[in-house]
Amino acid sequence: MSLLSVRDLAVSFGGTRVLEDMSFDIAEGEVLGVVGESGSGKSMTALAIMGLLPMGGSAAGRIRFEDRDLLALPEREMQRLRGERLAMIFQEPMASLNPVFTVGEQIAEVLRRHRGMDRRSAHREAISLLKLVEIAAAERRVDEYPHQLSGGMRQRAMIAIALACRPKLLIADEPTTALDATVQAGILDLLRGLRRELGMAVLLITHDLGVVSDICERVVVMYAGRVAETGAADAIFARPSHPYTQALLAAIPRLDGPIGALPAIGGVVPAPADFPQGCRFAPRCPHALPACEVGPPALRTTVSGTDAACIRVQEVA
């Protein structure tokens, strides 16, 4: 049975739907990647699971986590779950720590909140958590303020906060985007190692396909608030079926590729208010037919074993 099961999740702001028909599962200990451009609904998916949608946002559908429907859970229950069974790390390590408290105090806050630890044992546990995320001189760093740490160290500290209660599911919203390449690799290595060590599942949100191929077992490719293609990471990278996934993969610059202009997908992602009636990728799709504009295409199984939302998937793949 899966740890998290999302069914027909839709998120809307006022009358505008920014996300719909979102369904996926995460098994215990699995790493699922959610990829897509800015505005494709990746972050909204994460926030909907955490119950932290911005003001005015509402979620419909079903999000089942360990036999509980998160969307039906009262706020108090959600508060008990957050940071305990369900943790999240954010995109901006520079601003995600409170500048007026030491790193140790912020780690201790979770432990005191959920584990009821006293100040001293929480401080001790904070040090061992900083060691767990491989911060050198943890005994000293624990009493330092965020501004005294580098970007990479801050993200490690964020991970320490998220892991303090050994959550079953870690949602990582673009955890490496704001970091430079070598630090990025270090953070990904850390996540991979911790996930194995602690046996937690990870929902990794990114727009970086390199990151996905690096650590994800399964992938959900999103486009304009809907799932375009989903399946095993190997299959999607070896043989993408949806025209959008194909175009996305073709747009990755390769060291051994021809020298010249980078391939790009023509046009831009439509704004949520102007999402087309039918397949949302149709206006930018080289294979589009009039039939594509009739209604949103359902997911169908492809020859490579993935599911793609494209009516021409048999011919295109």
């Binding site: 955490m50 932290l52 508060q79 008990r80 779950l81 957050r82 940071g83 305990e84 943790a87 999240m88 954010f90 995109q91 901006e92 601003a95 995600s96 720590l97 409170n98 500048p99 007026v100 806050e109 979770v110 909140r113 959920h114 964020m158 906060i161 998220a162 303090a164």
Partner: peptide, 26 residues
């Protein structure tokens, strides 16, 4: 609107706690 306020919510802090401990001192 600072990200650390969202971060505080994400570790299960109640709204009153978010306001008193994370927003007010800043």
């Amino acid at each position: 609107e600072f990200p650390f306020v969202e971060g505080a919510r994400a570790i299960g802090a109640s709204p009153a706690r978010v306001l008193l401990r994370h927003v007010l001192p800043n």
